[in-house]
């Protein structure tokens, strides 16, 4: 059933590498946007908070596929990315595609960060402020590290979703794993086996990712449990 792999495994490897690449870029941009927009969202300035609410509402309320297409078609008009091929796809598709993934993920990540930040008692902020630390230092050195520890499981979920949903970039012609599997399926006139291979690849990727997140959780949690 999987004999085709002998011939087509390089295609799947290339697709896997592409999926990993766009996922990493997407996660990275998502974290950055999440941080920026959670600060907006919690800001005392009404306008900033409003901007963050609108961003989160729009991203959460519309399909990722449409977001990706809109961003791709808009960006390709204003962003002049050279038509370099990388891992089987043009960078003019990979870059807008990963940015779109990041923009999508940023909204969810911002809300995850917010849940973490509001879970930290107000006394922690007051302790920082009363020592003479600035609000910024208090937020970034005292509140956020504690918040991040609390939200690691939720962040892990978000990263895993992103890896799987990166398959929507297929619609704008990024040759990630799903696209490659469909391509191979078309050649074989049989879609089931290549799609099973693609599913297995996603499973392995997300499994490794979830193990990494668990490792991080353990590492960050150890301090709190330690007793002297």
């Amino acid at each position: 059933m999987f004999d085709f792999l002998k011939q087509y495994y390089p295609v799947f490897l290339e697709g896997t590498a592409q999926t990993i690449l766009i996922s990493i870029i997407g996660i990275f941009i998502g974290i950055l946007l999440g941080l920026v927009f959670v600060m907006f969202r919690l800001s005392k300035h009404k306008a900033l908070s409003y901007i963050a609410r609108v961003y989160i509402a729009i991203v959460r309320g519309t399909p990722a596929m449409i977001q990706v297409m809109l961003i791709y078609y808009t960006l390709s008009n204003i962003l002049a990315v050279p038509q370099i091929q990388f891992l089987g796809s043009g960078l003019d598709r990979v870059i807008p595609g990963s940015i779109a993934l990041g923009i999508n993920s940023g909204a969810y990540t911002a809300e995850i960060f917010r849940s973490g930040i509001i879970s930290i008692p107000k006394g922690q902020t007051e302790a920082g402020i009363s020592l003479g630390l600035s609000e910024k230092t208090t937020m970034f050195s005292i509140i956020l590290p504690q918040a991040v520890r609390n939200i690691l499981p939720a962040l892990g979920n978000e990263f895993i979703s992103l890896v799987k949903e990166s398959s929507v970039l297929f619609y704008i012609g990024v040759q990630e794993v799903t696209a490659q599997a469909l391509g191979v399926g078309g050649t074989l006139y049989n879609f089931v086996p290549p799609l099973i291979v693609a599913a297995a690849i996603y499973f392995v990727l997300t499994f490794v990712l979830s193990q990494l997140m668990q490792l991080m959780e353990k590492k960050m949690g150890r301090k709190y449990a330690q007793s002297n």
Partner: peptide, 9 residues
């Protein structure tokens, strides 16, 4: 403070 508010991490 009443609740100490030490940084737990």
């Amino acid at each position: 403070f009443q609740q100490f508010n030490l940084f737990p991490n």
